[in-house]
Design a binder for these strands. Structure first.
Lengths: 321, 321
DNA sequence: TTGTATGCGTTATCAT
DNA sequence: ATGATAACGCATACAA
């Protein structure tokens, strides 16, 4: 095992000097620095991370807790990862698949100092349980949560959904059907958004049944078949996400219909799929949220952190409306 | 920061005794043990992993390197994770999305002792690069690779595919079309398998074009539309995986056809989807391979390891043939 | 059955 | 500009 002492011995200097070279401290003789670097190179020496972690009191590893690896979480995770790397942190991914035990493993790693912080995209254990771990290190979430100890980079979907509905209204759509996603934290906000919207414009509410728990491409196809089967069809469909909108659009096309010719389709999230299929959608800045999450963690770790971004939903007009 | 010394001080014993209690060593007075445990509980003490890692020379973390998170890799990773946990190891997941740099991060963590070993489901850098890291710790792969330094838990797809073809033949199918997956390492073996099979039974080769790069449900649907459009249809289709078979089956059904009534469909992998849709398929024991991968690593780490499983493809007959 | 002393590999303080 | 030395928190060889 080649360690810093061996390098020091070979270079005829003290470990301090070697450490200085490694960590780019000033005040080290240029000739010695060159020599030391050469020996490091020759022996293929790398500082032992564990020793460093022990000494520094941190591992520079941040855990990311998620349930599944979906399109949206992917872009969040990637952006988070990029930010973290830029600041010398690495990311440890935990895909729990809803397993409480798996989630606890990550939490325990925070407790035992193997992780400096945790970002929670999804949780299985009660918030109370997760909150009880905040004393061991920063925990930040992407979910809707108001907590003193767990900051959230959540965005209010009421605003985002309203943005979409107002756009549809402006385009002349009046008979709008809603496809909602799972009974999570955002759906109630979207439901409320639609109700307020319908009130505001005196639209006949409940002319169509609300869809719920629709989130996959297949769900979108199902909605398409429903639409086809109606006598009195909606003139626009606001979808829970781009997947649903994509399934809806392609299934309608298979049946010989078109959008926006026969019906307007609005996606949500602005994923690659929306781009691919030219779906009008609401841009949900997951990557910026991820950066914010990292900045918040950085700040909580007492490190200098950039200012967080202000986040805005944005309507991306394409060709499905 | 509550450490082992504080516990020792409070209990009026030495750190050695506390350490013994924590690590369940014998020879410690029962009364003291109880008392120490009580104090540990009260102070909410956890041993610092970094100190332990430094002392023991290992972190008990194994990295899993993958490109994307797909159905098949999921079952591998989960099985690997379970095995690892059972032996006191944790798993750090790296989803590279084909980014060389991301892969190097994992490799470097092995070098700097943050990882005890690496399991490589997918690689982006050249094997030569990856091989150069084997001197820092065990690296095991799931891909086809013959190497002195990187053991593989790969299974020969020639055998698996032949198993399926022979089964189709026995069931009376003579006009078999092949749907292959990406130009990876297994496809050539499958192609070879079909050629040998066709030779053996004097089947007219190339009566149908081989499909390539088909691996999603959508690809399967595309194959269905092709099949429907043919005058002279194959009587069976051997699919690259269960996804394709599923897309094929459901799209045929939408068009009013059935399997095995109109055509036999054979999947591959035996995933949940095959179960769900009653697809005849080839069981590919990814979970056993994962356990083997872990056992090999355990052995390479000089720890006592169970015997590896012998792996066999298995034909799962359901209702699509 | 228990304690003392040492080392794992670093970084940082304080002299020089 | 450089080096001795003391931590960081733990496990263990050895002594008692």
């Amino acid at each position: 095992m080649t360690n810093i002492q061996e390098i020091a011995r070979l270079a005829g200097v003290s470990t301090t000097t070697v450490s200085r070279v490694i960590n780019q401290h000033p005040y080290v003789n240029e000739a010695k620095r060159k020599e030391i670097l050469k020996i490091i190179e020759r022996l293929d020496y790398v500082p032992n991370s564990n020793a460093k972690s022990l000494k520094e009191g941190m591992t520079r590893i941040i855990g990311v807790l998620t349930g599944t690896y979906t399109t949206l979480s992917t872009s969040f995770i990637q952006a988070f990862n990029t930010s973290a790397n830029k600041h010398g942190f690495n990311v440890m991914l935990f895909i729990t698949n809803g397993d409480r035990q798996q989630e606890l493993i990550a939490l325990e790693m925070l407790r035992s100092k193997q992780l400096d912080a945790l970002i929670c995209l999804f949780r299985t254990n009660e918030w109370k349980v997760i909150e009880s771990y905040t004393k061991y290190g920063p925990i930040v979430t992407w979910q809707r949560l108001v907590s003193d100890t767990i900051p959230s980079v959540f965005m209010d979907h009421y605003k985002g959904y309203t943005l979409g509905l107002e756009y549809l209204y402006a385009k002349g759509y009046r008979r709008i059907a809603n496809v909602f996603s799972s009974k999570g934290l955002n759906t109630p906000e979207r439901v409320r958004s639609y109700h307020d919207f319908a009130d505001k414009y005196q639209l006949k509410a409940n002319s169509f049944p609300d869809f719920h728990d629709k989130l996959t491409i297949y769900d979108g196809e199902e909605v398409a078949r429903w639409w086809i089967g109606q006598n009195d069809r909606p003139d626009a469909i606001a979808c829970s996400n781009d997947n649903v909108a994509a399934g809806l659009l392609t299934e309608l096309r298979r049946a010989g219909f078109s959008a926006p010719g026969d019906v307007g389709i609005l996606g949500f999230d602005n994923t690659e799929l929306a781009h691919l299929l030219d779906l009008t959608t609401i841009h949900y800045p997951a990557n910026k949220q991820a950066e914010n999450a990292f900045y918040i963690i950085l700040d909580m770790l007492g490190q200098p952190a950039p200012e967080v971004h202000t986040l805005e939903f944005e309507l991306i007009e394409r060709k499905s409306t």
